[in-house]
Design a protein around this nucleic acid. Structure first.
Lengths: 121, 121
DNA sequence: GAAACAATTGAACAATTGTTCATATATTGA
DNA sequence: TCAATATATGAACAATTGTTCAATTGTTTC
């Protein structure tokens, strides 16, 4: 017997069953948008450096991150805003210093998984 | 006793020890660039939809992905190139159909971790 | 209060990105 | 060979991004 809905040129889809079943599981536009934003927050070299540094040291202030990474405080601060907006980092103000740290253990896991993927190449 | 190298305004860094120890662990420019590229590959809504769909169905052809996601074949194909370049997907040609799947289990883990993070919000 | 300092912010700029549209390539079946 | 189909590709466009520079806010110390 011929495999259902496969390779039929007069069909809108190649495999109607697959299309319908996957379609049912799809989440909202908002969900995918937010998911993409989360990955995007980790998609810049300066930001991966910041996150990597915060994996080594629980808390770091802006100037020290700039010194570690070798860029300006301004550039770091701009990127920290992105990380803050996406809730990847939180901060703790002590006098005029602001110590940043990763927001929760999920971020560590997510980042560690990315590290593993790249190290395997 | 005063905490070493903390809050000293005549220092280039706030906490010299932290800066030096983290600096030693930093990876190469290339590494952070590649790591960022990997996250960037997942940082677009259309691409998160593609990856999500491929988490549900091991193999999907371009037309079916377009039908599931609700966009053109061309848009899907362009995004698949990005995913291909970053080795997030591989493909299997059968006649004029090309079935795409996630490249390895690492991608599933990485993506699943991202899903969990967003679902917790 | 004034100077020094940590961090943030806004404007501006080049660089990159994602889509659409049109076209090209490749495979199938008549 | 020709038409239909599946996918890929190139050009073009608006939109977004990351950095730098200059200015600003808020805190500490003198």
């Amino acid at each position: 017997m011929k495999k259902q809905n496969s390779y039929l040129s007069d069909n809108l889809y190649v495999e109607k069953d697959k299309v319908n079943s996957v379609k049912k599981t799809m989440k909202s536009e908002k969900f995918f948008h937010y998911l993409a934003e989360t990955f995007k927050a980790m998609s810049d070299p300066t930001r991966t450096k910041i996150i990597f540094a915060l994996c080594q040291e629980k808390e770091l202030c802006v100037s020290d991150m700039a010194a570690i990474i070798g860029t300006t405080n301004s550039a770091i601060s701009h990127q920290l805003r992105t990380l803050r907006n996406m809730k990847l980092v939180r901060y703790n103000k002590i006098g005029r210093l602001i110590f940043y740290s990763l927001d929760d253990i999920h971020i560590n896991h997510l980042f560690a998984e990315g590290l593993r993927h790249v190290e395997d190449l």
